[in-house]
C-alpha cells in the first residue's frame, strides 16, 4: 500500500508523450546517427529513459518538455554514435582539472554574446547536455538522475563547460 502509488493517468500520459514526440525524437536521433535502424534504437532507449523520468515532465505541450525529451534523445543518440565511432572533433578536451575561472578579463561585448550560442553548440556533448539542462532549470540531482550518472560528475561537467565558455569569451576580446 505504501510502496505503490496508483496512477491511472500514467500510462495514458506516456502514450500521449510518445505520440506527440516520436517523430521529433526520431529526427533528433537521425540528425546525429544518419541511419534509420540506429535512430529507431535511440528513440526506443530514449523513450524508456523518459518513462523513468516521468516525474520531471510537467506540461506535455510545453517547450521545456520538448527540450527535455530532445536532450534525452540527443544524449542517447550521441552515446550510440560514440559507441560506433569515437567522436574526436568536439571541443572540451583541453580543459584542465583546475580551470582558470578568473573572469575579470572578460568584457561582455555584443559579439561575445552572439558567439556564446555558437560556443555552446560546439561543446562536447558530455558538457553540452548537463549545461543546457541546468540552464533549463533542472537541478544537478535531476540531471544526474536523467542521464544516469553521478551528481558530482554532473556538477564537474557543468563547471568544465562554463570554464570552456569563459576561455572562449576571453579569446574573443
Amino acid at each position: 500500500m505504501l510502496f505503490f502509488t496508483p496512477d491511472a493517468d500514467r500510462s495514458k500520459r506516456i502514450e500521449i508523450i510518445y505520440n506527440k514526440y516520436c517523430k521529433f525524437m526520431y529526427k533528433v536521433a537521425y540528425d546525429i546517427l544518419k541511419e534509420k535502424y540506429y535512430a529507431e534504437d535511440a528513440v526506443q532507449q530514449s523513450f524508456i529513459r523518459i518513462i523513468n523520468n516521468l516525474d520531471k515532465i510537467g506540461d506535455i505541450e510545453s517547450q521545456k518538455t520538448r527540450n527535455f525529451i530532445g536532450l534525452i534523445t540527443r544524449n542517447i543518440s550521441i552515446d550510440i554514435y560514440n559507441s560506433r565511432k569515437k567522436q574526436s572533433d568536439a571541443i572540451g578536451d583541453d580543459i584542465t582539472e583546475n580551470p582558470d575561472n578568473d573572469l575579470s578579463a572578460i568584457i561582455i561585448k555584443k559579439e561575445t554574446v552572439a558567439n556564446l550560442k555558437k560556443y555552446i553548440n560546439e561543446l562536447k556533448p558530455i558538457y553540452y547536455i548537463p549545461l543546457v539542462m541546468k540552464a533549463q532549470g533542472y537541478s544537478v540531482n535531476e540531471i544526474a538522475d536523467t542521464l544516469g550518472i553521478n551528481s558530482k560528475t554532473v556538477q564537474k561537467r557543468i563547471e568544465r563547460a562554463r570554464a570552456v565558455l569563459y576561455k572562449k569569451m576571453r579569446e574573443d576580446i
Binding site: 520538448r66 527540450n67 550560442k117 555552446i120 549545461l131 543546457v132 540552464a135 533549463q136 565558455l165
Partner: peptide
C-alpha cells in the same frame, strides 16, 4: 560578475537548445 556571466551562459544555452529543437521541429515532414 561571475553570476552575471553564468546567467548570460544559461540564457544563451536556453536559446541555443530551443533554436536547435525549433529547427528540428520545423524540418519534420510527416
Amino acid at each position: 560578475y561571475i553570476n552575471n556571466i553564468d546567467d548570460l551562459i544559461d540564457s544563451a544555452a536556453n536559446e541555443a537548445v530551443s533554436e536547435l529543437f525549433d529547427n528540428i521541429d520545423k524540418s519534420i515532414d510527416d
